[in-house]
C-alpha cells in the first residue's frame, strides 16, 4: 500500500478550564513534552517519539471540549487537491494562515455534518524526537509520566454521522473499518474509519448534541505500558472511566480516563493492521457491549452519556 493523501491525525486542540493546572498535568502525568505557548496563551505539546513540533494544543476556556482536530496530508499539492475534493462534495472551506499555530503551515479548515471542526495541513516543523535520523538509539520509557508513542485518533459524538462517513470516504479517501448497528439493524450507531493502515484514525458515535468530544487517544507500545499507565493514573489520583480492559472493536487494549477539565483521553495499545481490501466488520446491537468493552461484555452508563 502506498500511503498518499491524508497521512494521519496531526493535532487536537483541547479546551481546558484552568491552563495553569493543565500544563503540569499534561507534562508530568501524561509525560508529554511541553513545546511552549503562543501569544494567545495556548500551550503546545508533543510526545517524546513524535517528530513534528506538536500534536496537542491546550486552550483555556470556560467549558471543556474539542476546538478542532487536524490531519496531516502528504504535501501542499495534496492539500490543494483535497480542498478541491471537499468543495466538490459541497463542503465550505477556509484557509488559516501559516503561523497561526506555532511552526505550522497553512491549514484548510471545514466543519463536519456533526458540527466538529476539522483541519488539513501539509507542513509542520520537524523538530525530531531527540534520537536523530542517523544510528538512533531506542527511546527507553523510564522516568515520570505515561509517555505515549503518539497522539493517535479521536472519537467524536454528533447527530449526522452518515454525513461524516460520506465526507471522509468520498472527499478524503478514508475507509470504513468497523461499525455498530442500532436495534433496527440498519442505522449506524458508531463508525470506525481509517486513512492509513491503522484500525482507526477517527471514530464517530451518533449522539443528539453536535460537536461533542468522547475522547482523544494516545498510543502505547505494549500491554505492560497500559498497566504502567494505570498505576501512574492511580498514583496521581487521575479520574479513570474504565479499564485497563480491551475493546472488541479494533481489539485494542485500553484505559479511558479524564484530564483535569473532564475531557476524556485514552491510552491504548494494539489493534490490527488495516488494508483497503478488507471487509468492514459489523457489530450487532445485541453484542454492542462486547464490541465496546470486550471483557465486561456490557456498556457502562458513561460511554454513551459522558462527553465534553
Amino acid at each position: 500500500m502506498t500511503m498518499t493523501g491524508v497521512l494521519r491525525p496531526g493535532h487536537a486542540q483541547i479546551r481546558v478550564l484552568d491552563i495553569k493546572e493543565s500544563i503540569p498535568w499534561y507534562t508530568d502525568v501524561m509525560g508529554l513534552v511541553p513545546m511552549g505557548q503562543d501569544r494567545q496563551g495556548r500551550a503546545y505539546f508533543k510526545t517524546r517519539q513524535e517528530h513534528d513540533h506538536h500534536s496537542v494544543i491546550l486552550r483555556q476556556a470556560d467549558r471543556a471540549g474539542l476546538d478542532f482536530f487536524g490531519f496531516k496530508v502528504l504535501d501542499k499539492a495534496t492539500l490543494d487537491d483535497l480542498e478541491k475534493n471537499l468543495r466538490a462534495h459541497g463542503v465550505a472551506t477556509e484557509r488559516i494562515p501559516a503561523g497561526d499555530l506555532l511552526e505550522t503551515g497553512e491549514r484548510v479548515r471545514f466543519t463536519l455534518p456533526t458540527g466538529h471542526v476539522i483541519e488539513l495541513y501539509a507542513e509542520k516543523k520537524d523538530v525530531g524526537n531527540a534520537m536523530g535520523y542517523t544510528n538512533p538509539e531506542v527511546d527507553v520509557i523510564e522516568g515520570k509520566g505515561i509517555c505515549p508513542v503518539r497522539m493517535d485518533h479521536a472519537l467524536l459524538y454528533g447527530p449526522d454521522i452518515d454525513g461524516n462517513r460520506e465526507l471522509f470516504q468520498k472527499a478524503l479517501g478514508f475507509s470504513l473499518v468497523e461499525r455498530v448497528k442500532l436495534e433496527d439493524g440498519q442505522t449506524d450507531l458508531a463508525l470506525w474509519l481509517t486513512c492509513s493502515a491503522k484500525a482507526h484514525d477517527i471514530a464517530l458515535v451518533r449522539h443528539a448534541e453536535p460537536g461533542k468530544l468522547h475522547h482523544v487517544a494516545f498510543l502505547l507500545s505494549t500491554w505492560e505500558q497500559v498497566l504502567r499507565a494505570a498505576d501512574i493514573m492511580s498514583k496521581h489520583r487521575v479520574s479513570i472511566d474504565i479499564g485497563p480492559t480491551r475493546h472488541g472493536i479494533t481489539q485494542g487494549t485500553t484505559i479511558y480516563f479524564f484530564d483535569p477539565s473532564g475531557n476524556r483521553l485514552e491510552t491504548f495499545c494494539g489493534g490490527y493492521d488495516f488494508y483497503p481490501d478488507m471487509h468492514p466488520v459489523t457489530w450487532t446491537w445485541d453484542e454492542v457491549g462486547a464490541g465496546i468493552f470486550y471483557h465486561d461484555r456490557k456498556l457502562n452508563d458513561a460511554f454513551l452519556t459522558v462527553v465534553t
Binding site: 467549558r63 471543556a64 472511566d241 479524564f258 477539565s261 452508563d301 458513561a302 462527553v307
Partner: peptide
C-alpha cells in the same frame, strides 16, 4: 449521585 468525568467538564 451519578458519576461522569469527576473533573467539572461533563455535568452529569
Amino acid at each position: 449521585i451519578p458519576a461522569g468525568c469527576r473533573q467539572g467538564g461533563c455535568g452529569v
